[in-house]
């Protein structure tokens, strides 16, 4: 499993860490039930504050991607469907891209519906 952060990336570091974990799950590098690197190890290796990694893991827990258990660390949810996570991630990226073009969610949905009907 490869986690990366890029100092040239404008996104906050915790969002990059979270995105990296999502990508690893979607790519099959992190399977459902697999353990994420301990916060301290990940922070030391990536050269960031442990709070940055904790924040990323909390975000992923809020998204129901991972679950944190005392004594077992943070793990990918056993019942997570990597395919659906990949779809959700792609949708988020699509929404973000549409926003840069001035399109709201409703307009984007309308375009998708129109595309689906064509």
């Amino acid at each position: 499993m490869l986690l990366t952060i890029d100092v040239g990336d404008d996104r906050p570091l915790y969002l990059q860490v979270a995105a990296s974990v999502r990508r690893a799950v979607v790519d099959g590098q992190l399977e459902p039930g697999a353990a994420l690197p301990p916060t301290r190890d990940a922070a030391a290796a990536l050269g960031v504050n442990p709070e940055t990694v904790q924040r990323a893991y909390r975000l992923l827990a809020d998204e129901s991607v991972v679950v944190a258990r005392v004594g077992r660390g943070t793990r990918v949810r056993d019942d997570l469907d990597p395919g659906l996570l990949g779809l959700d991630t792609a949708i988020d990226e699509l929404v973000a891209r549409a926003a840069t073009l001035g399109l709201g969610r409703a307009e984007l949905a309308a375009r998708i519906a129109a595309d689906g009907g064509s």
């Binding site: 499993m1 490869l2 986690l3 990366t4 952060i5 890029d6 100092v7 040239g8 990336d9 690197p37 190890d41 990940a42 290796a45 990536l46 050269g47």
Partner: peptide, 9 residues
């Protein structure tokens, strides 16, 4: 990426 820091496990 050129500026990326990586952790592989």
């Amino acid at each position: 990426a050129d500026d990326a820091t990586a952790l592989w496990q």
